[in-house]
Every structure is written in structure tokens, then in C-alpha cells.
């Protein structure tokens, strides 16, 4: 990297940052007062423990279980449908027909392009509000995300065992099941777990549009300024995410 180039780039970056800082509209801050902020903080520091579990099925505990269920099922649907698509999109499986993997990649890119929130809004319209809409939204979005990564792993797999099998007369499907797939399976399994972590986070938010899970009660609590409830939900979300992350990190370590 030339010195002059880095100087020019830094100069442009500084100008851009300065411009953004100076031109952003701060008018919303007029309504912000320190005392109200203090009230929020005090409210957040007093979690409403009664809401944690009351056996009604509308408490934090049951909703968190539901959120995790949405994530698991969504990830499963995503992985299940992403696998065949990733096989269509892997370049190294098609020696001459370049068009097929290109088409597969295109489909995956399109699926990935829409934010999960949009899928959630569509599926809430299609199947009605509820956890199932969340499952479908996470599933469809994750087809694109996982499919791309699956295909990349497949393309990066080594050709040695495949060539060895082919040279002794194995058919396409035999090389597929005895060389290609076993090679990439551990990495792909760990990718699925990573995406389960992501899915738990999104399942917690998709409730904002009515797709089930903990999101809906949270947005109601925020709108009602019921900070005690907000606080207990946030604690639950953070704890759940941390626990799921650490479990999946442990499993992934064992996979490698």
C-alpha cells in the first residue's frame, strides 16, 4: 500500500465522518430528558420476577421455550432444503454444465437478499400470525444463507479420495455418498449449529411483526413503558442466547 493512497483514503474517510456527524438530525433529542432516562434505568434495574413463570403459557419461560422451538424448527427446515440446493449450486459437481451451478447460486442469492423481517411479514399474511410464520420466515431465509456456505464447503473439498474412487470405477452417486459428503459433513454440521445460534436471535425479534415468540410481548411492554417487564424479557433473551451459544460452541469443538 502506497503512503499517498492511504493518506487520500484516510482524508476522505475523515471528511465523510465529519459530514455525517454534523448533518445528522438531532431534533429527536429535544424530547429527551435526563430524568426520564433515569426512570428508564431504574425501571430496567427492577426486573418483574413474577412474570418469569406463572403457568399461563404467556410467561417469559414458556415464551422463551417457544422461541427456541421456532429457531430449531426454522434451522431444520432451512438446512433440509438448503442441502439439495447446495448440491445444485456446487461448481465442482458439474464438469461441463456450468449453467446448473450458476442457476443454483442465483436462486440462493435471491433467497438471501430479502431480510428475514420481510419473509416474516409475508408469512404472517399467508399462514396468519403465530409461531408457524416465524418458523417459515427463518427457514426460508436460512436456505439462502446455509445453501451458500454448504456449496462453498463442497467446492473447497479435496479431490483426492473422489479421484481415487472414480479411478476404480465408482459411479457419480457412489463418489457422492462415500467421498464428497463424508468429507464436508463435520463442517456443515457445525455451520448448522452456528445458524441455530443466529436463528435464536432472529426468533426473538420476529415477534415484533406477529411471528410468534418473545418479540411481541417485548414490544408491547416497551410501548407501555413497562420497564420491569422489558428488563426480565431482555435478561431471558441474553441468558438463552449465551447458553445456546456455549452449548453449540462445545458441540462444534467436538465435531472438529
Amino acid at each position: 500500500m502506497t503512503n499517498k493512497f492511504s493518506k487520500t483514503v484516510s482524508f476522505i474517510v475523515i471528511i465523510l465522518v465529519l459530514y455525517s456527524v454534523l448533518s445528522v438530525d438531532y431534533s429527536s433529542l429535544e424530547y429527551f430528558t435526563l430524568s426520564s432516562f433515569k426512570n428508564v434505568l431504574i425501571g430496567l434495574s427492577k426486573p418483574d420476577w413474577n412474570y418469569l413463570y406463572d403457568g399461563s403459557g404467556e410467561d417469559v419461560f414458556s415464551l422463551m421455550i417457544l422461541t427456541i422451538n421456532i429457531a430449531i424448527l426454522g434451522t431444520f427446515i432451512g438446512a433440509f432444503l438448503a442441502y439439495p440446493l447446495s448440491l445444485v449450486a456446487s461448481k465442482n459437481l458439474y464438469s461441463k454444465l456450468i449453467g446448473i451451478p450458476k442457476f443454483g447460486k442465483f436462486v440462493l442469492n435471491v433467497l438471501r437478499a430479502f431480510p428475514e423481517l420481510i419473509y416474516a411479514i409475508i408469512f404472517v399474511k399467508v399462514v396468519g400470525p403465530g409461531p408457524f410464520a416465524g418458523v417459515l420466515a427463518i427457514g426460508v431465509h436460512h436456505i439462502g444463507m446455509m445453501g451458500k456456505l454448504f456449496a462453498e464447503e463442497m467446492e473447497a473439498s479435496s479431490d483426492y479420495s473422489f479421484e481415487a474412487q472414480e479411478s476404480v470405477g465408482a459411479s457419480f452417486w457412489q463418489t457422492m455418498f462415500y467421498s464428497r459428503i463424508p468429507q464436508v459433513m463435520p463442517i456443515q454440521a457445525s455451520l448448522i449449529l452456528t445458524h441455530l445460534e443466529i436463528a435464536v436471535r432472529s426468533a426473538a425479534t420476529l415477534g415484533l411483526v406477529g411471528a410468534g415468540g418473545i418479540g411481541a410481548p417485548l414490544i408491547f411492554a416497551i410501548q407501555a413503558r413497562n420497564w420491569g417487564k422489558v428488563s426480565i424479557i431482555l435478561i431471558a433473551v441474553i441468558l438463552t442466547v449465551l447458553i445456546i451459544d456455549s452449548i453449540s460452541a462445545k458441540i462444534r469443538k467436538n465435531l472438529q
Partner: peptide, 28 residues
């Protein structure tokens, strides 16, 4: 770092909108 990272961005935005009101700076 761990706690901040686990809060989903949409939830964060919803809370900040409740505190700071609707506006560009809240997004920032």
C-alpha cells in the same frame, strides 16, 4: 462485550426508540 453482542439489533432499536424517541440519532 458478550452481553452487548447477544442483544438482537432490532430489540435494541425498539428500546432506544422508546428512550430517545423516533429520529435519525436513535438510529445512529
Amino acid at each position: 462485550m458478550g452481553v452487548v453482542r447477544t442483544i438482537p439489533s432490532l430489540l435494541l432499536a425498539a428500546i432506544l426508540v422508546a428512550i430517545f424517541g423516533i429520529g435519525e440519532f436513535t438510529g445512529v
